[in-house]
C-alpha cells in the first residue's frame, strides 16, 4: 500500500465488533480510512471474503457420519483397558496431580543433581589426603629404622622434612608409616627423609 499500511494490518481492522481493536486503534483506523481510498477498497474486499468464509459456519454433517463415528469410538473404548479407579487415585495423590512424564523428569533431575553433589564431595575428600605406601624395595631399609618417622606436609606447599630434634626414639622396632599428603596442584616431587639408628646415615627417598 502506498500509504504504508500493510494488508495484514488492514485485515485486523475489518470489524471493530470483534473486540480485537483497542480504542486507539479504532480511532486511528477511522481517521485513516476517511482519507485513504485504497485502504477502504482493500477492507471492502477483505470483508467480502470474510462473509464468504462465514458461510462455512452454516455447514452441517450428515447424521449417518456421526452415528458411524460414535459406534466406532464406543467399540474401541470397550476394547481399551484403563487402569482401575484406585490406581488412578493413588497415582494422583503420589504425583500431586502432576503429569507422569513431568514427575519422572523432576525425579530424574533430582537424582542427577544428587549424584553430581556426591561426586564433587568425594573428589574433594580424595584430594584432601592420599596415603602413600612404602614400596617393597625399601622394606629392608625401613625395617632397620627403629623409630617411626612421620613427615607431614600441608596441601599446596612443598613438603618439609621432620626436624631431627623432634623425632622421638623408642627401643622397640616398629614398622615405619610414612603419611604424605600430595599437593593437588602443581605436581611436585616429594622428598622423604628416613632416619636410622646411626645418625651418620640418612636415607632420602624421592617420590614422583
Amino acid at each position: 500500500m502506498s500509504c504504508g499500511y500493510s494488508e495484514e494490518r488492514l485485515a485486523l481492522w475489518m470489524d471493530s465488533s470483534e473486540m480485537d481493536l483497542s480504542i486507539t486503534e479504532i480511532r486511528e483506523r477511522d481517521r485513516h480510512l476517511a482519507s485513504c481510498v485504497a485502504c477502504r477498497d482493500v477492507i471492502a474486499k477483505l470483508r467480502e471474503s470474510q462473509s464468504f468464509v462465514k458461510t462455512l459456519r452454516a455447514d452441517s454433517v450428515n447424521s449417518a457420519v456421526l452415528v458411524q463415528v460414535h459406534a466406532h469410538v464406543m467399540d474401541r473404548v470397550s476394547e481399551l483397558k484403563r487402569p482401575p479407579a484406585w490406581v488412578i487415585q493413588v497415582e494422583r495423590s503420589l504425583l500431586f496431580g502432576i503429569r507422569r512424564k513431568y514427575a519422572l523428569a523432576g525425579f530424574g533431575s533430582l537424582v542427577l543433581a544428587g549424584c553430581l553433589i556426591l561426586g564433587i564431595f568425594w573428589k574433594v575428600q580424595m584430594h584432601e589426603q592420599t596415603r602413600v605406601q612404602i614400596p617393597p624395595v625399601l622394606a629392608p631399609l625401613v625395617a632397620q629404622v627403629s623409630d617411626p618417622v612421620v613427615v607431614n606436609s600441608s596441601a599446596g606447599s612443598p613438603p618439609k622434612a621432620a626436624p631431627i630434634g623432634r623425632v622421638k626414639r623408642t627401643p622397640s622396632r616398629k614398622p615405619v608409616m610414612v603419611d604424605v599428603s600430595i599437593p593437588a596442584e602443581p605436581p611436585q616431587k616429594i622428598m622423604v627423609k628416613l632416619l636410622t639408628d646411626d645418625p651418620s646415615v640418612v636415607i632420602y627417598w624421592s617420590l614422583d
Partner: peptide, 11 residues
C-alpha cells in the same frame, strides 16, 4: 498476527 496473515491469504 496469524489470523491477519491467514485472512489475506484466503482473500
Amino acid at each position: 498476527s496469524q489470523i491477519s496473515i491467514a485472512r489475506v491469504k484466503i482473500r
